[in-house]
């Protein structure tokens, strides 16, 4: 399970291996906020999400990234999630933090 500020495993792999297909994006989860509505899974365009087997403290199954290489970082999951528990980022924008990154991080 992935949590805030820790990128999905696929993203980490992508930086070390250029041979496998490079994911264009990844997701970030705050699993403790998830209420298991399934919006992110149902409306993910490349269908890279699924319910995980694990329970969170609220008793729901948060989603997990089952096909990291397919994530485009489109953030539609972030737009749908009514519980602010997931969002997507594009990795091409993400490897170099913007100048105000430190400030942006503080707000999370």
């Amino acid at each position: 399970m992935h949590s805030e500020a820790k990128p999905a495993e696929g993203a980490a792999e992508a930086t070390t291996s250029t041979r496998s297909r490079r994911p264009r994006g990844t997701i970030v989860l705050k699993p403790e906020r998830c209420k298991g509505c399934g919006f992110c899974i149902a409306f993910c365009p490349p269908k890279v999400l699924a319910f995980s087997a694990e329970f969170n403290a609220l008793g729901y199954h948060p989603p997990e990234l089952i096909r990291p290489e397919g994530c485009t970082g489109c953030d539609l999951c972030g737009l749908y999630c009514p519980d602010f528990a997931i969002y997507g980022v594009m990795l091409k924008d993400s490897t170099t933090p913007p100048a105000d990154a430190a400030r942006a991080e503080e707000t999370t």
Binding site: P7, P97, T108
Partner: peptide, 19 residues
Amino acid sequence: MSTEVYLPPNPVEALLRTD
């Protein structure tokens, strides 16, 4: 190296009273 991957925050966080 995963620690070098920078992920921008969820845009909604800036609007939320996260507490």
